[in-house]
């Protein structure tokens, strides 16, 4: 039973991590596009109307997909002045409680509302507001999925904390 569960939790971990790693390479495209744009405008006097917008859309996809990976690594910062003095069990209990009330409210509402929003965006083939007007729905899909992955990673953490509190096991 725990073995099977551990496998599922591991799968969620690697999903978060690999997604984060994959999307982290967007930064290279952003750097390249901006540099080419400066050259085009300053040296060739023929800027594009779309480069900055592509960069902005990539930037949006970049950071939002990283949320689950950061959670997996325990990288979302907290005020640990009291927390760091708790025993491991106490830490897990506090997290169980606060993740249930606060984290899952946040991620639950974001998944719920943002998925509806992304579906709507597809249904009207929404574009951005600029004159170049690229499709907006791919980015919105990425955001919705990112919140789902964040929720999954949070669930994995919660189950781990629960098992730790009950059985004292770390899986």
């Amino acid at each position: 039973m725990t073995g099977k569960l551990a496998k599922v939790l591991k799968a969620i971990d690697s999903l978060s991590e690999n997604t984060g790693k994959l999307f982290s390479f967007l930064i290279l495209i952003m750097v390249g596009l901006e540099t080419i744009e400066v050259i085009r405008r300053y040296i060739l006097h023929s800027p594009t109307t779309w480069a900055w917008e592509v960069v902005v859309l990539l930037y949006g996809a970049h950071f939002i997909t990283g949320g689950a990976w950061v959670l997996k690594e325990g990288g979302h910062v907290r005020t640990d002045i009291l927390f760091s003095r708790f025993s491991p069990k106490m830490k897990a209990i506090v997290d169980l409680l606060l993740f249930a009330i606060i984290f899952f409210t946040f991620v639950g509402v974001m998944i719920w509302k943002y998925s509806i929003h992304a579906i709507y965006s597809w249904s009207i083939k929404e574009t951005t507001y600029t004159m170049w007007a690229p499709p907006f729905y791919p980015l919105k899909t990425v955001v919705a999925i990112s919140f789902i992955f964040l929720g999954l990673q949070g669930l994995a953490k919660w189950i781990r904390d629960l098992i730790f509190v009950i059985k004292g096991e770390e899986i």
Binding site: I81, D95, F106
Partner: peptide, 9 residues
């Protein structure tokens, strides 16, 4: 915040 919940959440 002082109970140590991550700031973003």
């Amino acid at each position: 915040l002082f109970m140590g919940h991550p700031l973003a959440f």
